[in-house]
Design a protein around this nucleic acid. Structure first.
Length: 813
RNA sequence: GCCCGAGUGGCGGAACUGGUAUACGCGCACGACUUAAAAUCGUGUCUCGCAAGGGAUGUGGGUUCGAUUCCCACCUCGGGCACCA
């Protein structure tokens, strides 16, 4: 018997697969097979310097199982990978070491590629992309220019987060609890011109079109919460001043509860509200008000949170507003609990019904009207829809990102870089540290910055801001479709081919990614896709037909795996000791795919034992085999996972030697279970059922080659190397990867006898066996005659007998 | 504070739309094989009880013939958002 040598087998097949290109997807021009297309996608990794840890491959393995199954089901599968390589860690590393980020990225992607390849994931490596490759980001810049053309990219003065120690502008994601993520210094606010993308123009569609896609419910909910749609009414409150009476001005208030208008006791404006400045001359306590506004503006995020969100405010004396509901004059306040950026920046306060208003009213002794009359929804204003979503701040003052392809001309203003001049390549610099002024390090490269204006040929300067690292990942799934196209980001022919046949529904058939990306990345890429759709550059309205997510792999003991905790497990070590197939099976077996699970090196051995068992059965089958078995009628039966009767237990533990019919029955049940479990990503239970089958196969003296091959096929997406090796040892000339997914035979699965549980008042007392087609009355009669049942029922009357088909009988006494 | 997810053996976890709770795996104990060890195989492994039988799915209620599953209240943990009117 041949020894199972995972190193030899895995290396052998990985080399053969790569040489033969078995996992290459076929594009329409070289595809004559008429196979339907299937596009499965994982979130392409950020290649960090630490290399892969065991958590990274989990989604790759999950989608690999889906992709491999699809190939066996006869699809032309596109399962690509690339690198989302722009970003902070590489840049920070460059600042620290002075190394060129390009060199660092090359080194990191080489490591990642080698590690991922060692796991036998069926990626189409011929389509590998890298967001930092000028040939790639040419098109990221090109799409930006299209946004600019449509006025969806614009510049605006924005308050940004500024780290005074690092002298650098921070993205919101880089601010943790009001402090700089890198050095922990309290972040200040600074006004700066920023590039913005008008995602809010798409808010309604991004919200509504979720109805048409197949995302997990919690993912849809995450998107909806983030977009934050609320339906309400805009109500006008006329302003009266003590000096001149009724004014021309009115305060517009947005409310989702216009019915509470009779409960309004005061009005609150955000301190930044422009009405405050407009009414300056009418406000009798202006000095005091101005002091409050200035003090409030100075506050950092840290101070605001540290104050435990105690609401503060000040009354605007000398002015009142008229409640359109009951013409009552109400006081007007400004307060920090009203946000300038949402709604109209003004609220009508109903302290009886709103906890925040109540808290404020109690603090400042404002009136509270309980038990007021409710109004109709639209009686005092017009219906309006408001979104929480803000426009996307699209510029970063960083080096390692796509340069924004715009030129600032003294005469012409902002001029887009002509498309023929793309890409605007990142120049090499000596120092990656940002400048004191908060500009990107690119601002220091005079040779690169100073250019001629493309319009007037006069003196001009390049935009030195770069794009956020969300940019390259907002459209990468489109580039895989045509990765080497130098004329377009992808050809219409390829785009059309890889789109869902129903069109509009989406393009990627199944996209799996992390929960942490279900808001931003998913929303951004949907936004870009819809924009490209409006330009008729992509054939579908949505990018992803289906979206699922995976849970993280945590370190031993359930804490996050991190370098600082020293609990990082490198997959290289596991592959070396146990093999890629074992690692794959273990990662899928350890727990539900969509939940976080703690790593346990101790438990891997179980998966390795299973793989070895498969190997032993394989060796046995190769040397001696029997023809395919046919089940006999009336043979004893059992169900998967049925332990109570002890029958399966006896089977598993060998005290009962299973007939070939049983094996066949169990095999077909397992085929069904595995086929269905893969679709629901219940990989753990799929493996469990194959373990049961393998245990039983090992008990058998002889297994038919046909049966064993079917087992290998359903196992192959999980453990591709060992199954390919055994498949070829059984004389197959073609790869198991292009064989046909086995179908379960319902006739072979059926049990002749069914076990029925007998309960009295819901308590289990006994069990009986019935024939598959037996009549209900007969079954009930049998149950009532059962010895154990009679004993328990002595002296009691039967009130009801409940029969659940093929399951149980409950006798109520 | 709000939203989402989750609480089941020593551990990771099973249980389809309310119908045999603890599948599968790890660990542990004992046994077989072995000079021995490893590997492998076998037996056992929620709990009380000699048994018949009873009790257990975070806690307390409810609905039901029957609840891990549905409803209400609460507790704990994980994740997200932070005054969104």
């Amino acid at each position: 018997m041949k020894e199972y040598d995972h190193k030899k087998i895995e290396k052998k097949w990985q080399t053969i697969w790569e040489k033969n290109g078995v996992y290459y997807a076929k594009d329409p021009k070289n595809n004559k097979s008429k196979k339907p297309k299937y596009y499965s996608l994982i979130e392409f990794p950020y290649p960090s310097g630490d290399g892969l840890h065991v958590g990274h491959p989990r989604p790759y393995i999950g989608m690999d199982i889906i992709s491999r199954k699809r190939r066996l089901q006869g699809f032309n599968v596109l399962y690509p990978i690339g690198w989302d390589a722009f970003g902070l860690p590489t840049e920070n590393y460059a600042i620290k070491t002075g190394l060129d980020p390009r060199v660092v990225t090359k080194k990191n992607t080489d490591t990642y590629r080698r590690q991922i390849k060692s796991l036998g994931i069926s990626f189409d490596w011929s389509r590998e992309i890298n967001t930092t490759d000028p040939k790639y980001y040419k098109w990221t810049q090109w799409i930006f220019l299209q946004f600019l053309k449509k006025d969806l990219a614009y510049k605006a003065k924005m308050t940004i987060n500024w780290c005074p120690k690092d002298k650098i502008g921070l993205a919101n994601e880089e601010v943790v609890n009001g402090c700089c993520e890198r050095c922990g210094t309290v972040v200040e606010k600074r006004e700066k011109e920023q590039w913005m993308l008008a995602i809010t123009k798409y808010a309604d569609r991004l919200y509504k079109d979720l109805d048409d896609v197949d995302y997990l419910p919690q993912i849809k909910l995450g998107q909806r919460n983030w977009i934050g749609k609320s339906e309400g009414v805009e109500v006008d409150f006329k302003i009266v001043s003590a000096r001149q009476g009724l004014t021309e001005e009115s305060a517009k208030v947005f409310t989702t509860r216009p019915d509470t208008i009779f409960g309004v006791t005061y009005l609150v404006l955000a301190p930044e509200h422009n009405l405050v400045q407009k009414l300056k001359s009418e406000i009798t306590n202006w000095d005091e008000v101005l002091r409050y506004i200035v003090a409030n503006k100075k506050k950092t995020d840290v101070e605001r949170t540290a104050e435990n969100k105690e609401k503060t405010g000040i009354e605007l004396k000398g002015i009142k507003v008229i409640n359109p509901g009951n013409t009552q004059a109400l006081p007007v306040w400004i307060a920090d609990y009203v946000l300038a950026g949402y709604g109209t920046g003004a609220i009508m306060a109903v302290p009886a019904d709103d906890v925040r208003d109540k808290e404020f009213a109690e603090k400042y002794k404002l009136p509270i009207v309980e038990n007021y009359e409710k109004a109709g929804f639209e009686d005092y204003g017009k219906r309006i829809t408001k979104f929480k979503l803000r426009d996307w701040i699209f510029s970063r003052q960083r080096y390692w990102g796509e340069p924004i392809p715009v030129i600032n001309c003294e005469k012409c203003g902002l001029v887009p870089v002509p498309e023929k001049d793309l890409p605007v390549e990142l120049p090499k610099v000596k120092n990656y540290q940002p400048t004191d002024s908060g500009e990107s390090p690119l601002a220091n490269i005079a040779k690169w910055v100073n250019v001629k204006c493309p319009q007037c040929r006069g003196k001009a300067k390049r935009e030195t801001d770069t794009m956020p690292n969300w940019a390259g990942s907002s459209w990468y799934y489109l580039r895989y479709i045509d990765p080497n196209n130098s004329k377009q980001f992808a050809s219409p022919k390829n785009l059309y081919y890889w789109s869902d046949s129903k069109l509009k529904a989406g393009l990627v058939d199944w996209y799996n990614g992390g929960n942490e990306h279900t808001t931003l990345h998913l929303l951004y890429s949907r936004f870009w896709h819809k924009f490209l759709y409006d330009l008729k550059l992509v054939p579908t309205n949505e990018p992803y037909v289906k979206r699922t997510s995976h849970g993280m792999i945590l370190g031993e003991g359930g804490v996050k795996m991190s370098k600082s905790l020293g609990n990082v497990i490198n997959p290289d070590d596991i592959v070396k000791t146990y093999g890629a197939d074992t690692l794959r099976v273990y990662e899928m077996f350890m727990g539900p795919f969509n939940q976080s699970v703690a790593w346990s090196t101790e438990s891997i051995i179980g998966s390795r034992r299973f793989i070895e068992k498969v190997w032993r059965i394989g060796q046995k089958t190769i040397t001696s085999s029997v023809p395919r078995s046919v089940p006999e009628k009336n043979s004893p039966t059992f169900a998967l996972g049925d332990k109570r009767t002890g029958l399966l237990q006896q089977v598993i533990h060998g005290s009962l030697n299973l007939s070939p019919e049983h094996l066949s029955r169990l095999l077909h049940k397992t085929i069904k279970k595995v086929s269905e479990d893969i679709e629901g990503m219940h990989f753990n239970t799929a493996i469990s059922s194959m373990m049961i089958l393998a245990t039983e196969m090992e008990k058998k003296q002889n297994i038919s080659i046909e049966d064993f091959k079917m087992f290998l096929q359903i196992l192959s997406p999980f453990a591709p190397h060992i199954t390919e090796e055994l498949w070829s040892s059984l004389g197959e000339k073609k790869s198991i990867n292009i064989s046909e997914w086995p179908k379960w035979d319902v006739a072979l699965m059926q049990n002749e006898e069914i076990k029925i549980i007998l309960q009295i008042n819901g308590k289990i007392r006994a069990e009986i066996f019935i024939q598959a087609e037996e009549k209900e009355e007969n079954i009930k009669e049998k149950a009532l005659k059962n010895e154990v049942i009679l004993r328990h029922m002595a002296g009691k009357d039967v009130k009801r007998v409940i029969y659940v088909k093929n399951r149980l009988i409950n006798i109520v006494v």
